[in-house]
Simulated assay, not measured.
Amino acid sequence: MAKPAVLFGGPSPEHDVSIVTGLQAVHALGDVHAVYWSKTGDFWDVDAALEARDFADGVPRKSGQLRLVAGEGLLGKRRPLDLAAVVNCCHGGPGEDGTIQAAMNLAGLAYTGPSVAGAALGMDKLAFGHVVRGAGLPSLPRVQLSEHQAPPFEGPYIVKPRFGGSSIGIEVVADAATAQALLRSAPHLRAGAVVEPFRPAAEDLNVAVRSWPDLQLSAVEKPLRREGSGDILAYRDKYLGGEGMVSAPREFPELPGEVADDITEMATEVARLTGLRGVARIDFLGAEGDLYVNEINTIPGSLARYLWVEPEVVFSRLLADLLDEAVQRPAFHYSAAGADGSALRSAGTMADKLG
C-alpha cells in the first residue's frame, strides 16, 4: 500500500536544519518512508526511528541507496518505493530553489510545498523584491551588489546572499567598500549578493501562510535574539536551541489593529503573487512606524508548525493537509496541446535549413 515519504537533507548550507525538520515530520507521521538526501547528492532510504545525531557523521549505517528516475519515481535496489506523496523538508539550495521540484515533476511524484516557479522566485531575493515592489507593496530598496558601482542609497548596509536563507552569509557593514570586499571574499556570496539599507531599530514580524484546504494565516511572531547576538537575527538564534525553529526564542505580540490588518493584507497578496503552495513563512520588518515586506521562506524551518497557535493547527493536521494538497492539487501539469504536427509537416528538409 502506498505511503508518504519525507525527504530531508540535501547538498545545501541548510542541510543540518533540514534533517531536524524532516525527522520532526517523520516522527509525527509515523508510518512513512524516511528519505535522506546526502551532502553529496545521493538519496538513501533510512530507518524512520533515527535521531538527528545519527546523521552527524554522514549517511547512517544500514541505509539503502535510492535513485530518482524520470518517469519511475524513487527506486530501491529491486523496485520503486510505493509512494502516496513526498513531504519536502529540504531547506535552501536545490531543495528549495526549484531543482528538486523539477526532478520530482519528471519522476512523476506528488510532493508538498512550492512549485518549480514558486520555489525559484522565493529563493531569489532580488527577483522577489522586484515582484513585491512591482505590485505596489512596501519594501526596503534592494539591489544587486556590484564590485564596480556603489549602492544608490546611503549605508550602513545589510549584505545578503542573493540565493539562500537561514541568515547564513548575511553581514552588516558600514560602507560600500566593505560590502564590495565581501563580494570578493565571502563563500556564500559566490552566486551573487543583494544589498539593502540597514535599519538597526527594525523589528522582525513573521507570519505563516498555508494554502490548503483554504488560504489561512497563523499568529504573528516577533523572533527574539539570544543573549550575545549581533546586529541581526542570526543562525544561532534560530536553530541552535535543540529543536530547530521550534525552540527559537519568540513572542506573540499584541499588535495594533491597523498593523495586524496590514500584515494580513500584504501576506495574502504575497501568497497570490508567488503562487503559494503548502506552508510558507512571510517575513516583515517594522521600522519607525512603517511595515515592509522582507522575504518569503517557501519551506520554513520545522514547517512553521510553531506559529499555528491562533488559529491552532496541530502538526499532524498540518502534515495531513500538506499531503492532501500534494495529491489533490498537483504542482505540475504538462501539456502538448497545440503540438499537432503541422510545423513538422511544413518544415521541409534540414539540408534546406542549413544551406
Results as ranks from 00 to 15, higher is better:
M1P: 13
P11W: 06
V17W: 08
T21Y: 05
G22D: 12
L23R: 06
A25I: 10
H27W: 11
A28L: 09
D31S: 10
V32T: 11
A34R: 02
V35H: 09
S38I: 11
G41V: 11
W44R: 05
V46W: 05
A49C: 14
A49H: 13
L50Y: 10
D54S: 15
F55M: 10
G58H: 09
P60H: 12
K62G: 05
G64R: 14
L68G: 07
A70K: 12
G71T: 14
G71A: 09
G73N: 01
L74H: 11
G76P: 07
L83S: 12
A84S: 15
A84L: 15
V86N: 05
N88K: 05
H91E: 05
G93A: 06
Q101N: 12
A102P: 12
M104L: 09
N105Q: 08
L109K: 11
A110W: 05
P114A: 05
V116H: 10
G122E: 03
A127L: 04
R142E: 02
Q144C: 02
F153W: 04
E154L: 07
Y157Q: 02
I158F: 01
I158L: 03
R162W: 01
I170H: 03
E171P: 01
E171S: 15
D175F: 06
A179R: 02
P187E: 12
G192S: 03
G192F: 00
V195C: 00
A208Y: 13
R210I: 08
S211D: 10
A219F: 11
E221K: 12
K222G: 04
R225E: 09
R226N: 06
E227H: 13
G228T: 09
G228L: 12
A234Q: 08
G244A: 04
V246R: 08
A248L: 02
P249R: 04
P256M: 06
E258W: 08
D262L: 06
A267G: 03
T274L: 04
F284I: 10
F284G: 09
L285T: 03
L291W: 08
V293Q: 04
V293Y: 01
I296M: 14
N297T: 05
N297H: 04
P300N: 07
A304N: 01
A304Y: 07
R305Q: 15
R305L: 15
E310F: 00
F315H: 05
S316D: 15
L319S: 11
A320C: 12
A320K: 13
E325D: 13
V327D: 00
Q328V: 14
P330H: 05
S346F: 07
M350Y: 14
A351R: 14
D352A: 14
D352H: 13
